[in-house]
């Protein structure tokens, strides 16, 4: 076993415009590595568990940074905007507090200062077996070490497992799925838009990648439509520690209410599925109901009706139900 924590020599490209970046991405393909704040990257590289030939550092490209309001009343956030900026931005804090609340719980202040929204969305899972650099399914191998008779899988999935049982570690991803954001993606061959919900990919579809980004593509920005602006939001992240920890379970919820009844709702959980997990059954059940404890108690079990527990993660079932209850309690 090699002893880790030493960076290998790796080429570094620092493009200052998006065209150069996409040209590099097209040329390097899977041998290139898009670099934002580096908070997910350097561990992989130092452990030599992933060995790209070259970094494409996106942090020097100005158009990838910043937060702008959109003509429709929504907001566009450049992928290289730091998590701290997302957490502190007045526009987001005014209209989309769900996202700022989620951003404030990312990692630690130091990591939020360095880490970018794009990086937070595209980061790889934290399954400890995978992070050791083991050749599991997600690394292109033939086995899952986590979901085995004695696997240590406290932090793993309740939903959407397919051979791999890893979960999304992102705090901001569930918020963006709840807000029905759209990802703007570009490459040398053109641009496309993908709904946040389709941007994140589970192992059934692609066991090697957690997003729909192709090797030559770059996430340019995230567009949040006006639809959920000023809705009623609820966010909670439960982790072992209050800082610098990944969610055991997190919940992002957005509600629209009229005359004391919920008219529309999006509830999305993190830490329970490889992708941000929509609680569709709950969403449907609460339409037309008042947002209160009684509704919460009545519907909370629907959050976990499709859950499959592993050796050590059954606690996520009551935890998810409780978070749904709290979201509805308000």
């Amino acid at each position: 076993m090699t002893s880790y924590d030493v960076m290998p020599a790796t080429e570094l490209y620092q493009p200052v415009n998006i065209e150069d970046a996409t040209a590099l991405a097209a040329r390097l393909g899977r041998k290139g590595w898009l670099l934002g704040g580096g908070q997910d990257t350097y561990g992989w590289l130092k452990d030599r568990a992933k060995r790209p030939d070259a970094f494409i550092d996106l942090t020097g490209i100005d158009v990838l940074k910043g937060i702008r309001s959109l003509p429709d009343g929504g907001v566009e956030i450049g992928s290289m905007t730091t998590i701290t900026e997302v957490a502190q931005n007045p526009l987001i804090n005014e209209k989309f507090t769900l996202l700022s609340a989620a951003a404030k719980t990312v990692a630690s202040p130091q990591i939020r200062n360095m880490g970018t929204l794009g990086g937070n969305l595209c980061q790889d899972t934290r399954c400890w077996y995978y992070r050791r650099g083991l050749n599991c399914y997600r690394a292109g191998g033939n086995i899952c070490y986590a979901d085995s008779p004695e696997g240590m899988n406290r932090e793993h999935a309740l939903f959407g497992a397919s051979r791999c049982v890893a979960v999304t570690p992102s705090d901001t991803a569930p918020a963006l799925v709840a807000l029905e954001a759209t990802m703007l993606i570009t490459s040398a061959s053109g641009s496309r838009q993908v709904a946040a919900e389709d941007f994140f990919v589970g192992p059934a579809t692609d066991i090697l990648n957690m997003t729909a980004l192709q090797a030559d593509e770059i996430l340019v920005s995230v567009r949040i439509p006006r639809k959920w602006a000023d809705a009623t939001f609820y966010h909670e992240k439960v982790a072992d520690r209050n800082v610098w920890d990944f969610a055991l379970v997190s919940l992002c919820a957005a509600f629209k209410e009229d005359a004391g009844q919920i008219t529309d709702a999006r509830l999305v959980a993190g830490g329970v599925d490889c992708v941000p997990h929509r609680l569709r059954e709950v969403e449907q059940a609460i339409i037309g109901q008042p947002r209160n404890e009684t509704t919460g108690e009545a519907v909370k079990v629907r959050a976990t009706s499709a859950a499959t527990t592993l050796n050590y993660n059954q606690f996520k079932v009551p935890l998810m139900q409780n978070l749904v209850l709290r979201a509805l309690r308000g």
């Binding site: 033939n142 086995i143 899952c144 070490y145 979901d147 085995s148 008779p149």
Partner: peptide, 8 residues
């Protein structure tokens, strides 16, 4: 449920 009993 799989057992992972087949060695690698």
């Amino acid at each position: 449920n799989r057992t992972n009993s087949i060695d690698e």
